[in-house]
Computed example of a mutant assay.
Amino acid sequence: MGNGNKVEMLLAICAVITSAVAVFIAWDQGRVMRAQQHGAVYPVVQIEGFVSSNDTIASMGLRLSNSGVGPALIERVDMLKDGEPVDSLAPYIDHFPPGYQQSWSSLIGRAVAPGSEVEPLRVDWPREAVSVAERNAAAAAWSELDVEICYCSVFNRCWIARGLGMGTSMSRAEPVKRCERSETDIFEAVANQFRPLQTEPTPEVE
């Protein structure tokens, strides 16, 4: 093999190596760019129970917030007892002292913007209508339940987050491949299970 052929072969090997390095750099830059894109829309969902009161109102409920930098697409919400889904919240609603007013918000399919909060369940009493002991007893019954939420980013990266009962914080979200959309919203279903606010009967007009 002449010197010319050796030079040509060396140049060909260098060209192959250069092409391989260029492909690797392009792949690595694409990977970094994708990571930056995902990081720019990374949602962090937290749900926790709350119990509060002021001079006029005593309250308890659940609060969901997104402390991330991208919208959280809520796909599934389950209430769990000892790790198993609960079919109905009626037994826990029965622990609420009478005389309350309730509000609720559906979560399934909701996009929670960064920095936003949603209260899927809230119960209020006039301050004089419920004692601290009654409210704490109701909160203790609800603290037996865990809340599990499956949510995704706009790039379809998904996580499961779990909250632990009324008045306690949730654990760190765990990544999952995908979220199965819930067929029903347990907080929408619970609206029909509340006892109405007790009022004095309206006298009949003769």
Rank of each mutant, 00 (worst) to 15 (best):
G49R: 03
G49A: 07
G49L: 06
F50W: 08
S52V: 04
S52A: 14
N54T: 12
T56L: 13
I57G: 05
S59F: 06
M60W: 02
G61K: 10
S65V: 01
G68C: 06
P71W: 03
A72V: 02
A72M: 01
A72P: 01
D78E: 15
L80W: 07
L80F: 09
K81L: 15
G83S: 08
G83L: 08
G83C: 07
G83M: 10
E84R: 14
P85K: 15
V86C: 06
P91R: 08
I93H: 04
I93E: 05
D94E: 11
H95R: 14
P97W: 05
P98W: 02
P98R: 05
G99W: 11
Y100D: 07
Y100M: 10
Q102W: 12
S103F: 15
S105M: 09
S106D: 13
S106V: 11
I108S: 06
I108E: 08
I108L: 07
G109Q: 11
G109S: 13
R110Y: 04
R110I: 03
A113T: 10
P114I: 01
E117H: 07
E117W: 07
V118D: 02
E119D: 12
P120V: 04
W125M: 13
P126Q: 13
A129M: 12
A129C: 09
E134H: 11
W142V: 10
W142N: 00
D146F: 04
D146R: 05
V147W: 08
E148F: 09
I149H: 01
C150M: 10
V154Y: 00
V154M: 00
N156K: 11
N156R: 11
A161E: 05
G165C: 03
G165H: 03
G165W: 04
G165Y: 00
M166S: 05
G167E: 02
T168S: 10
